[in-house]
Design a protein around this nucleic acid. Sequence first.
DNA 1: AGCTTTCAACTTTTT
DNA 2: GTTGAAAGCT
Length: 685
Amino acid sequence: MSDATLNPAQLEAVHHLHGPCLVIAGAGSGKTRVITQKIAKLLSCGYRAKNIAAITFTNKAAQEMRERAKHLVGARAGQELVISTFHSLGVRILREDGRHLGLKEQFSIMDSDDVLSVLRDAGGTTDAATAKSWQWTISLWKNQGLSASQALAYAKDDMERAAAVVMQRYQERLAAYQAVDFDDLIGLPLKLLQTSDEARGKWQELLRYVLVDEYQDTNAVQYELLKALVGERAMFTAVGDDDQSIYGWRGATIENLKKLPVDFPQLKVIPLEQNYRSTSAILRAANNVIATNPKLFQKTLWSEFGEGDPIALIEADGEEHEAERAVARIQAIRANHGGTKFADFAILYRANHQARIFEQALRRAEIPYKVSGGQSFFDKTEIKDLCAWLRLLVNQDDDPAFLRAVTTPKRGIGHQTLGHLSDFSAKWKLSMFESLFAESLKATLSAKALHGLHEFGRYVVDLEYRARHTVGAEEGKALLLEWLTDIGYEQYLLDQEENEKVAAARWNNVLDFVDWVAKRCGGEITQDGGATFETQKQSVLQVAQTISVILSLAERGDEQDQVVLTTLHASKGLEWPHVILAGVNEGLLPFKSEDEEMTPQRLEEERRLMYVGITRARRTLAVSTLRRRKKNRETVMGIPSRFIAEMKLHESGIKEDPREKLKRMREQFAAKAAASAAAQQKQAD
DNA sequence: AGCTTTCAACTTTTT
DNA sequence: GTTGAAAGCT
């Protein structure tokens, strides 16, 4: 469906401009289209781009929304729109007006590791687990808008009281350091808008219309900030789905959805129920499951795609068997439907560790896959810098790698010189590195530039020689560190980054990377499935080669045809033609924790998680359960999740008599037997 | 008995 | 990558 055609509910949502608006956007109901169209509508009604704010939860979502908006309203207006996360908006507000709270303009932002070390310090413990639990508790309190003293009054046991006391000291340290944590990026702007009329006036004047995406994921403080931003005028649109609220455990609260009609009596509530993603069979199962939850806003998803395939139930004997069945299903669907790509499949599970077994099975079947979430390590700039060097060592003709390495760190070779070098190499059909020592290059470049390039070239050649002849973990690490010293990388990081802590964190990443590479230089014994490999000690260059291969695979990234493995949480907002829900067992989904009680609220959130999983599927859905599963050290009986019964699969669109089913199965079997007999016959001929 | 080694299981995650 | 229990070792 194109952006131009909207259904009546979507149109209503886009056109309701003169007051607060809540769009209850069911899964796959085209909510991003509504948001971008509404932005366009606002612009055409006289709003200026810089006065429209769209708020998301992740930077990725913000980026994607800006792309969509640019597409619709043009690059210039698209760029001026305030599209950011709650947190980056908070940073902007505090940088500009934090002084009203006694915060200097260049305050620093503590990441989760920084927070942990301050907490260890403030609480006088070296125990990582204790500090982690404090961090967790304190963050939840701050998300609810509680101060340290309020938290102390609120604390219900000794653990929480201890956390509240530590929180008091923690807050004092933050103030002393002129530092804020992630939660403060919401809480402090709120405090600012509540206490300073000047600041409130300024921001309300600037952000004249506010759109909030994934509204069901907001926490109490974010809601207060939203209210403070929109003020009396209440010109905003919140888009969300109460049925997809799955982040209660990190402070999100559906209370915000309940409160909205109360706090804004003139609120216009518009449900989007037409689904543009899934078949009726899939939507019916989704509706049935979620119907078990008490409803805030009534809605029932429907689509025009027809009944579609019935939902497949897979019963597996154990985790390994489940993975094999999943692989078999992927292969069967691909065999029966020509043109089905690997990327059309996703395997969804409750917990990250479940991915491992599927990875093994997919590797064995030689099916390409990617585990979503992990591996972001290689996306970090500092790691990319170093990888460029490694790529250059492996292949000196890798021009992109050359360009990055030669300027990292800066060594007096600028784009002037590189431009000339590039022209020269293009003319002679040489790689840039090959061109370095060409006689005729002297005619084009100054002696100084040439000298710099030659020095770089000689260093690379020398480093390659050493990398080729350095073997073993210890030796490899020594060489890598020597290299980093040679090129002055640590100093480069310090120069690049204003914030010392950030630079230190980056240098730590570099050291992690060095360890990781060095480890691969030493021989080790690894087991993969049944096979045992004893890897030989490798030279640094050989390791660099394998890394280059991994990188060139990763670089093609999204164009790659790969089965996706991801958690249910991380799958929200995504969709695939064929989805397999794995491990749909009592204890896993709904997840049962040893030390925490299963409250109705928890169960409801687990049910929403199941709902999210079901609604990811476009064409086919398979739900897989385990008859036996491992728990701690023993194998226990697997009980199918109650959510499977709630899907009411027997109430299918086309009711089938059991006798009819038996007959159909007999026929299918006969047909298969005949086919295989024919195949054998053919082989014999 | 007390120590070390081994093996496998592990909630969800962004800023 | 960590933790924690069972098995193995001194």
